[in-house]
Amino acid sequence: MESESPKPFEAQRTPSDHPEGALLLTSKDIGKLIAKVAQRDRAAFARLYEATAPKLLGTVLRILRDRAWADDVIQDVYIKIWQKATQFDAGRASAIAWMASIARNSAIDELRKHPARRTVSDDDIEQIASVQPTAQAQLEGQQAVASLNRCLDELEKDRQDMVRLAYLNGWSRDQLAAHFDQPVNTVKTWLYRALKQLKRCLAP
């Protein structure tokens, strides 16, 4: 098993129900699968799904908060992955970021189309309040995760929360404004500054 890159995607299977052992794929492995999918390899597509669907479903469900809805969006996501696989360029994006962006964009587009379908929930706040570096991150020393967390920690608490609520939970500017009891324009400015600061902090 390679260990040089982060492994955010991992099928939730135990070795006993998967003869080839647990699927722990690096972003590079996933990139190779996408390349095969680009050649219409359906077996590779199924492997790609097995390796990535739990993470993508988690991502989409956190935004939509409705399992049936999330399932529908995940279907669209994998159809898009099948259709866009030829456009994936391993030189320009990591396979994981590429797939995750398709999932997040689909979920957020859906949410903006049907905002009333999502139940507003205190869970969102609890989720981001209880952020801890995951055990996996600590063990594997995922550098990118550590760097981003370090840079987020440098932001004021409210702004950290805003970035997480927007990116992970799909909150709109309006929802952020209501929750933080600020005018929308103030939220916009805060986000703008937070993103600039993050970019500076992450710059090599």
Binding site: E10, G58, T59, S94, T134, V145, V163
Partner: peptide, 11 residues
């Protein structure tokens, strides 16, 4: 994208 490390995978 590293923020997604905080997302719990769901089978």
């Amino acid at each position: 994208a590293p923020l997604l490390d905080e997302v719990e995978p769901i089978q």
